[in-house]
Amino acid sequence: MSVSKKIVNDFVANGIEFVTTVPCKQLGGVIAAVEKEPSIYHIPSNKEDEGMGLCAGAFMGGKRPAIIMQNTAIGVTVNTLVTLTQFYRMPLPMLISYRGELKEPVACQVEMAVHTKALLNQLNIPTYHFHQPGDEQELDAILKYTFMCNKPVAILTDATFWGGY
């Protein structure tokens, strides 16, 4: 089974029924698997803060949400993460493409990569980093943890984990 399919299976097993995505080449397989999964309502968003608003609404409406995005989004969503997701204590698994790490071909991506963990740390967001193939084994436990503590939680997935470009 592909890693993308395994990730979506973990979403489904943890009751996630509402997933918003902002496109990413590295996460293209996961986004396609989300789209194919009949038990998930897939709603692409135009910007990640919009997506977090949708997820907040879906959660209050009774559906477990998740967002799939690039690490550049951390720069876009700080205000939303602190004044909506954290302030109202809502769970939000964030599956993040960690661009700008080893094997990155685009220099500009590194500029955001060097701030990614620092920003997440500053925001007190629990952060997990999938670096080696097989690290996805922890996803099920991370999702359970997210919905146990009602916090946004970051799952960074880098190029080494995905097998390069």
Binding site: D49, A56, G57, A58, M60, K63, N79, L84
Partner: peptide
Amino acid sequence: GTMGLSSSIGLGVALAQ
């Protein structure tokens, strides 16, 4: 807080129930 997201939050609630 979070200026701009009223419509997004509302749509999320509506789609979920």
